[in-house]
Design a protein around this nucleic acid. Structure first.
Lengths: 278, 278
DNA sequence: TGGAGAAAGACTCGTACTGAGAACAACCTG
DNA sequence: CAGGTTGTTCTCAGTACGAGTCTTTCTCCA
């Protein structure tokens, strides 16, 4: 149940509600944090903000903030935070995939008080540079390539994930980011969400490079091509071709748009992951 | 970030923390609700409690309660609620699989105030009948078979899931339960968690009946057998055989225990789910 | 201007996995 | 004891997948 509590008295339900005092309950605050991922120049980036005030002043952190009590649900709060932080209007947010990742509620994860954070994961196409909100010193898309010395490339080690200046993230945001990357990698396997990183029209090669960048390994071009076209509803042809070939030659690729499938069947599995089994 | 907030002043971090007033923040309460599933006599059951007080007095609901601020994390809170509600001691809880399902935070989901509930999903072997906690009128394992007229058998329609007396669940617990069943069904595909519903030793047929009951469809016995034994780390032989055959004849089955795999590779996919794709 | 190199896309081949069904022996109940 | 049920193994055809080849088209650079 949503509450295990001793009612003041067993009166009528309405009378009881009127006498109800929310402040009588232990203070646990709820925030929403967003792990927004995008690809810029074929590199995976995450949206981070630099904290303007304590705690962790000056540190980089995931964008987020308190849920406005009584005004909005969790999904709306996440969308609002993302819009505020990216400076992108609500219309453009429609092209962004946003899903709940999980909640983090260790008592000491925030030094101020017990704060439960509901984390969200966003897949965005290439967006303009963010504008720092009023409560942030800076905001930026930060590359997640192998520049982090404490984590192997594309492995997303749970600790040590760093911000632009190489400093560790605030709070437990490194762990949240690691979980987000795990989720993103497996989401690509059985959903067509890789297309969320691309524009409305794209080539199979561009789609493949999304997989390669997020999974961190090269894929067989021919097999990928065959597979993508054979999964019903993954992509559909626009009939057109790219106006220019790739920068290093090759024929002009055909263009596709996202299909109507919500799940890939059969799935597009990552190659050989024996190590992940045990 | 875990907080987007105006610090009272930009003093030293410690001074700022000392002056911090948690009560200044909007009251959003956090609860933990548990969807505990088990199999009794080859039937899927969920643990429900009957609410002793308002709101929704007398209605059946998922077991749960407020997170004790500053004392415990979300996982511990879920384990505690489950232990309190089942009357099972912490030792027996070790055999129960408990994972976070998701968070539900629509502003009006609780009539008292804005309450965010972090839902957990538990897979339990057959446990004794629960004891109603002090704040519940009753607690019971409730069968989830096709007795619900508003939902097809094993489809878990998001609305209308009912309690023992056929009454709808309190709050948005019907939706949470539906999400939990979806999650459980897909978890069986790529994890060995079906074994969490069984005792420490089991036969392949018992394992198959777990899948059949949760997926709601009969499986090919021969292919299931081959598949289970071929996935590395799913089960390992104990060398023994069941002391008695099934009630309707047949040879004594060999006994197995859970292996050390945490993921099934390749996965054990549900048969034909065209409908789920779009 | 004419390769060299690279990429898009179609194709081939051998292997692995899957669903459907058959076969057979062990065991229950009546 | 007979008939039905179940555990387990096997066969067979269809599909999916990894790796490789081949052709064509394009860009870059000598």
């Amino acid at each position: 149940m949503s509450s295990q509590d001793q009612p003041p008295q067993a009166q009528s339900e309405q009378a009881w509600l009127a006498a109800y005092d929310p402040r009588a309950f232990p203070p646990v605050a709820v925030t929403v944090d967003v792990v927004a991922l995008t690809l810029r120049q074929d590199r995976l980036h995450v949206l981070l903000v630099q904290r303007a005030g304590p705690p962790f002043q000056g540190r980089w952190a995931l964008p987020g903030g308190f849920v406005r009590a009584g005004e909005e649900g969790l999904d709306q709060a996440a969308a609002r935070e993302l819009a505020e932080e990216t400076g992108v209007d609500t219309a453009a947010l429609r092209r962004v995939h946003l899903e709940q990742l999980g909640s983090y509620g260790a008592p000491a994860r925030d030094p101020r008080m017990h704060i439960v954070s509901v984390a969200y994961l966003a897949f965005a196409p290439d967006l303009p540079d963010p504008q720092a909100g009023t409560d942030a010193a800076a905001a930026a898309w930060v590359p997640l390539d192998g520049t982090d010395p404490t984590a192997g490339p594309h492995r997303g080690g749970p600790s040590g994930r760093t911000g632009p200046a190489g400093h560790p993230l605030a709070f437990d945001h490194a762990a949240i980011l690691a979980d987000a990357l795990d989720r993103a990698r497996s989401k690509l396997e059985y959903t067509p969400l890789a297309t969320a990183f691309l524009g409305s029209e794209f080539t199979i090669s561009e789609l493949r490079s999304v997989y390669e960048e997020i999974w961190g390994e090269k894929l067989h071009a021919g097999n990928f091509h065959r597979k993508v076209l054979s999964v019903p509803g993954f992509v559909e042809s626009t009939g057109g071709t790219a106006t220019r070939a790739g920068s290093r030659g090759g024929p002009r690729a055909r263009l596709y748009r996202a299909g109507d499938a919500r799940l890939l069947h059969p799935a597009l599995l990552r190659p050989d992951r024996e190590e992940a089994v045990r």
